[in-house]
C-alpha cells in the first residue's frame, strides 16, 4: 500500500497554488490535511500526477469572529483547533459539538476544515453542519474569487461546484438569531466511524415559542448533505409539540432523503434511523432554543 509517484509542489501563496491548479487541471489534487486523500493514494484508488500542498501557505488557517456574531474560519484550520477554540464553542455550538465526532483524535490534529468540505463526503459531519448553519464558502481561482452558499456547494457524491483551478479558502458562518437551538444526532457503529445516519437540526423559535425557522440536514442519507425543506416548512409557525416534531421527522425520513444500502446498513434501516434521529435532534434543538438545555 504505497502511493504511485507524483510531482509535488508546496506553493507559499494562494495565488501560486491556484496558478498550479490552473496549469495542471484535472491531473492535480490539492493536499490539505491529507487524511482522506492519502489513504486513497495508499490504496492506489487515486493516482494524481501532481499534488499541490497547501500546508506552506501562511494565513490559511484561522478562526475569527465574524460580523454580528458570526464566525470566519480559514480553510486550513485543523479540526482540533476548531474543536478547542472558545469562540467556536460560544458562537457555533453545533460546530463545536460536531468536531469530536470527526475521525479520531490524531486525524483531527491534521485534518482541515476546507479539506473535509472540498472532499464532499456526504457522511462527513462538517459537510452537513455547514449546510445546517447556512454557511458560505469563499472560492479563489486565477480568475478571481466568488462566494458560494454551502447548500449550493455540494452537488453529488464527492462532488462540489469547485472548478479544477479553484480553491476553497474560507468558510463564513452567520450568527444564529436569538431563541435558536441546534443539535446533531448520529448513530455510528464504533464511536468514530462514519455515522450510519446523522441528523443536524437548527431551530429558531418565535416569541410565542412556535417554530419560526427550522433547518434539518441529514448525513449518510443520500449523495450529498440531504436537506429537509418540507419537514421544515411543516413546522413553521407550529408549536414544537411531540406530535408536530414527529410528523416533521416522518416527512423528512420518508420523502426527503435518499439513503442507500451498504454492508453496514440497509437503506431501510437508514430511513428508520433518520426518522429516529431527526426527532431526537429536533427535540433537543427546540429545548435548547427555549433555553431549557
Amino acid at each position: 500500500m504505497k502511493p504511485a509517484p507524483f510531482e509535488y509542489f508546496a506553493p507559499p501563496s494562494v495565488e501560486q497554488a491556484v496558478a498550479l491548479l490552473a496549469e495542471h487541471g484535472y491531473e492535480a489534487k490539492v493536499l490539505a490535511g491529507g487524511q482522506s486523500l492519502v489513504p486513497m493514494m495508499n490504496f492506489r484508488l487515486v493516482q494524481p500526477s501532481v499534488l499541490v500542498d497547501l500546508n506552506s501557505i501562511p494565513d490559511l488557517g484561522f478562526i475569527q469572529p465574524g460580523k454580528d456574531g458570526g464566525l470566519r474560519l480559514g480553510a486550513l484550520t485543523r479540526h482540533h483547533q476548531v474543536e478547542v477554540d472558545p469562540i467556536v464553542a460560544e458562537r457555533m455550538p453545533l460546530l463545536h459539538d460536531a468536531m469530536p465526532k470527526i475521525g479520531y483524535p490524531q486525524i483531527r490534529r491534521r485534518g482541515t476544515l476546507g479539506g473535509s468540505l472540498a472532499h464532499a463526503d456526504p457522511s462527513a459531519e462538517l459537510v452537513t453542519v455547514s449546510v445546517a448553519l447556512d454557511g458560505r464558502f469563499r472560492l479563489r481561482s486565477p480568475r478571481g474569487e466568488r462566494w458560494v452558499p454551502a447548500k449550493d456547494f455540494f452537488v453529488g457524491l464527492f462532488t462540489t461546484v469547485l472548478d479544477p483551478d479553484e480553491l476553497l479558502v474560507e468558510v463564513e458562518l452567520p450568527a444564529l438569531p436569538a431563541r435558536s437551538g441546534c443539535a446533531l444526532m448520529e448513530v455510528a457503529r464504533r464511536s468514530h466511524d462514519f455515522a450510519l445516519v446523522g441528523a443536524a437540526a437548527v431551530v429558531t423559535l418565535d416569541e410565542r415559542g412556535a417554530c419560526q425557522q427550522v433547518r434539518l440536514v441529514f448525513l449518510s442519507a443520500g449523495d450529498r448533505p440531504m436537506q429537509a425543506p418540507r419537514a421544515a416548512e411543516a413546522l413553521r409557525g407550529q408549536a414544537p409539540t411531540p406530535d408536530a416534531l414527529r410528523a416533521a421527522a416522518e416527512i423528512a425520513a420518508s420523502d426527503e432523503i435518499d439513503p442507500s444500502s451498504d454492508i453496514h446498513a440497509t437503506a431501510d434501516f437508514r430511513r428508520h434511523l433518520a426518522k429516529v434521529l431527526a426527532l431526537r435532534a429536533l427535540e433537543q434543538a427546540c429545548r435548547r432554543a427555549a433555553g431549557k438545555d
Partner: peptide, 16 residues
C-alpha cells in the same frame, strides 16, 4: 470481500 480495510472491518476500540 467488501470490507477489506480497518475503516469497514470494525475492530472494537477503547470506546467500545
Amino acid at each position: 470481500l467488501l470490507n477489506a480495510s480497518f475503516a469497514d472491518y470494525l475492530i472494537p476500540s477503547a470506546t467500545e
